[in-house]
């Protein structure tokens, strides 16, 4: 085990997101002009460049867009392998990187998943997903 899990440098883009996770809420952004959801959070909508952005609580439901089982890991993750890192597409249409917990044999692309909140360190809660 070498080093700590990389700590997010919280900034004014991301603070509502990390605050949400600490409260077990998955917060994402919504563009009030083009009505698309946005993840990760930012100052302008990447679809229409509007600055009329608001925060909303995501449903926490999604499906697996892709995944990999990591067998060779480095640094603070070396002792955790094998583990599953995935890209999940939320019901709101945005994608995010995450981990999938549970039986690896059951994991497949397209399967529905739901968010869980994983306290991986004293001051870091991450959104993981599990099969529905």
């Amino acid at each position: 085990m070498a080093g700590q899990i990389p700590k997010p440098v919280v900034d004014s883009d991301s603070k509502p997101y990390w605050d949400g996770l600490n409260n077990h809420e998955l917060m994402i952004q919504h563009c009030d002009d083009c009505s698309k959801h946005i993840f990760y959070p930012r100052l302008l909508c990447p679809h229409c460049f509007s600055d009329q952005i608001s925060w909303t609580q995501a449903s926490g439901q999604g499906k697996i867009y892709s995944y990999t089982v990591v067998h060779r890991a480095f640094g603070p993750f070396a002792d955790q392998a094998p583990y599953v890192v995935a890209i999940v597409e939320l019901a709101e249409g945005v994608r995010m990187m995450t981990r999938i917990t549970g039986n690896r044999e059951d994991i497949a692309i397209g399967k529905p998943v739901t968010v869980t909140f994983e306290k991986v360190d004293d001051d870091l809660t991450l959104p993981y997903f599990k099969l529905v």
Binding site: T68, P76, T98, V120, L126
Partner: peptide, 8 residues
């Protein structure tokens, strides 16, 4: 910050 902590 939205990705590195997952260990990809």
């Amino acid at each position: 910050q939205y990705e590195r902590s997952f260990g990809l």
